[in-house]
Design a protein around this nucleic acid. Sequence first.
DNA 1: CGGCATCCGTGACGATACTG
DNA 2: CAGTATCGTCACGGATGCCG
Lengths: 228, 228
Amino acid sequence: MSRLRRMPRQTQPATRPARRRSYDQFCAGARALDAVGDRWTLLIVRELLAGPRRYTDLHADLPGVSTDVLASRLKDMEKGGLVTRRKLPPPAAASVYELTARGHGLLPVLAALAEWGAPALAERRPTDAVRAHWFALPLLGALKGTAATGVLDVHLDEGEFHIRTGEATAGEPVYGDGPAADADARIALDAELCLALGRGEAVFAEAVGDGRIEVSGDSPLAKELRGS
Amino acid sequence: MSRLRRMPRQTQPATRPARRRSYDQFCAGARALDAVGDRWTLLIVRELLAGPRRYTDLHADLPGVSTDVLASRLKDMEKGGLVTRRKLPPPAAASVYELTARGHGLLPVLAALAEWGAPALAERRPTDAVRAHWFALPLLGALKGTAATGVLDVHLDEGEFHIRTGEATAGEPVYGDGPAADADARIALDAELCLALGRGEAVFAEAVGDGRIEVSGDSPLAKELRGS
DNA sequence: CGGCATCCGTGACGATACTG
DNA sequence: CAGTATCGTCACGGATGCCG
């Protein structure tokens, strides 16, 4: 009692310099984390890497995020130049969020994180959410080894997505949710194999050879994937 | 008033299942963020990439982190297998934290983040902290273009660090704070140029040519850096 | 002195309810 | 559908205390 109960804050913060909690370090990594280090931000980017999304879709594919946090992140990301908001044409009176070029530039960051985190997928917990397009990133790495060019539909038990490679995408491969209208070929495999390909523990051609990957279509892309 | 004041939590959380806020997603990126997505964690890794550090050093080089958060992160990281704690021999009765191989594997993640965040270093705010070894990461990228092998001291106005390349480090380049006892060569340049090299906007050989990089030493490494 | 633990105020987060 | 409003809880940042 006698210890004079802590000076009641004589130096009041007073200066709330409006800074949104930056690390304030002259370091590229710290600057990046200032922009995308908040909880959920990189996962929102991951979702948008699969194409434009509406608010509700994002909320559905990010179980656990609360509505206000999602709204707040999207606003911050828009202010930070990571995403843009676009009104859809009249029929569907909704708006979608999509990545800017700057935002899309985070793909290597997510790829590096995913590669590092891959071992943690050894166990699949019953509480884990799953979406098909989360397996696109590992597959991108596996396809880089091949000279495959074109539009590829990928079918998993968990759902479907597509990958675009070649000159149409300016070198950088992109992918999207669901099947593509202009797919050149289609493959079907299971998620486990998808991950093994990403880890380099399986080889695409071999997996085609022993039937763990089914390739359909007769385009040049399909032929090449089958090994002609 | 009449709206019966919110049911007083009939479904009490009750189940606080001791889970430390995981994203609970079967996705490698989300798993990685479960491990290193907390505030400060990746910056602690960045510090430890420059070599073992004592608690107090970490606290000094991470301005803004509070003591309890730093202690808590280190504990989590130790539990997660990212760092180990090692007692120093008697003379210095202190303990240091150092990265495990798993922790060191985060280098590509930080490199990707740093590359993406590099444009944000255009402005240098007066409140920004700076440490010399934060410039090692950009330089690593620039040196990958060369066939340089050996131990290189790097001198900046902000301080000094060293880089080890070649077979001694099993392919992966490593770096450390301060000068190396066994340096083969030494270069002096300014931080700005360091960043430009990292962005690919400057070429090492050219910068040596016009004197923006001073190379000293007469080892094979020094000769090669000078262009012989 | 290094390495935390404790306490406190503020802000971020998560869940739910509500509104245009 | 796309958020805003509200509220409880917890994480964070800062200061200080303790203990070897």
